[in-house]
């Protein structure tokens, strides 16, 4: 069901977990501290309601816990693992990339891995280089994985439910900076319509801004400012980075003739490069200007307040890129 108005992103995640656990006894939740609600309450109440045999606290052993969840999924359980920060997915990459992602293919279709990994990512609060990264491009590079990145409270719940119902390993990336945000109004979002589909968040005629995660709200703020000077940008949220809904993105750029890709990850090797490559092939004849990218500088995430602010792209970064696209300095 659609979360009520005033529901936060975090509450929407919590509700989605609860609803899927109610609907399907094969849904299990595993991770560090999940039985006590996790660091911010995403799993709050689940252990009390469903028991600690289904909401399982694990040791700090990310690699083995992800492997264990894959092994359970191979047998038909639908585990939802919480990796507290995506920075720690590095510890589980062997299991996830070499086993979870590939077992479907390597087995010639005999096995499937209905696994969801929820993980926090992104910069906020000065948490520094080990608790703030955006590693979605690494994961979207792996055949067999799906990568989902919600940007609103309502969609977070719907996308998570779709991820849990999916028969493939899905990385579900939650920007910490969105956890306490609420949607302006409750949006009826069907589960089926979300996974693998992009969404136009604000229509516009001049430049398409493809934004992911928290950069969607940043782009919407940029849109307000640009609108005041007569520039209407169209903000499109891919929502799923793999598989990518190129059709919706391309349709937008065919209309506007210009595009900016905005993400919080470092630009070099980021998902923006892939989007640019796929878009230019799809819409080359429609392009009035090169597609530009907005993202973080090629550096680890710094901890101090001023340096952190310098690291994260903001609406001014997007506005500057949009103006550049339009040939205005």
């Amino acid at each position: 069901m659609t979360p009520a108005a005033g529901t936060t992103f975090l509450q929407s995640i919590n509700q989605a977990l609860r609803e899927e656990m109610l609907a399907d006894p094969d849904v299990y939740v595993l991770g560090e501290d999940v039985a006590v609600g996790g660091p911010y309450g995403a799993t709050r109440g689940l252990a009390e309601e469903f028991g600690e045999h289904r909401v399982i606290n694990t040791p700090i052993s990310e690699g083995t816990v992800v492997g264990l969840a894959i092994g359970a999924a191979l047998q038909g359980l639908r585990p939802v693992v919480e990796i507290m920060f995506v920075d720690f997915i590095t510890l589980a990459l062997d299991q996830l990339v070499n086993h979870g992602a590939k077992l479907r293919y390597m087995s010639g279709g005999q096995l499937k891995v209905p696994l969801t990994i929820r993980t926090m990512f992104g910069v906020s609060g000065g948490w520094g280089a080990h608790h703030s990264q955006s590693l979605e491009a690494w994961l979207a590079h792996v055949p067999g994985l799906k990568v989902v990145m919600p940007s609103t409270a309502c969609e977070a719940g719907a996308l998570l439910r779709a991820a849990i119902r999916d028969d493939n390993p899905v990385l579900f990336m939650e920007h910490r900076g969105l956890y306490w945000t609420k949607d302006d109004q409750a949006e009826p979002t069907t589960i089926e319509s979300t996974l693998g589909t992009a969404r136009v968040r604000r229509p516009g005629r001049d430049v398409t801004v493809v934004a992911t995660g928290r950069m969607v709200s940043t782009a919407l703020r940029a849109a307000e400012r640009l609108s005041a000077e007569g520039v209407e940008i169209e903000v499109v949220d891919p929502r799923t980075l793999s598989p990518l809904d190129l059709d919706t993105l391309a349709a937008s750029v065919r209309k506007t003739g210009r595009a900016v890709i905005a993400h919080e990850a470092v630009v070099q090797g980021g998902i923006g490069g892939e989007l640019v490559a796929q878009l230019q092939l799809a819409v080359f004849d429609y392009l009035e200007a090169p597609i530009l990218r907005v993202g973080a500088p090629f550096a680890p995430v710094p901890a101090g307040e001023q340096l952190e602010a310098a690291f994260v792209p903001d609406e001014h970064s997007i506005i500057a890129a949009v103006r550049s696209c339009l040939g205005r300095a």
Binding site: V66, G67, L68, A69, I70, L74, P79, D94, Q95, N98
Partner: peptide, 11 residues
């Protein structure tokens, strides 16, 4: 690599 997987199947 398969040791953690076996744990999951045991679960």
């Amino acid at each position: 690599g398969t040791i953690p997987l076996a744990l999951g199947s045991a679960l």
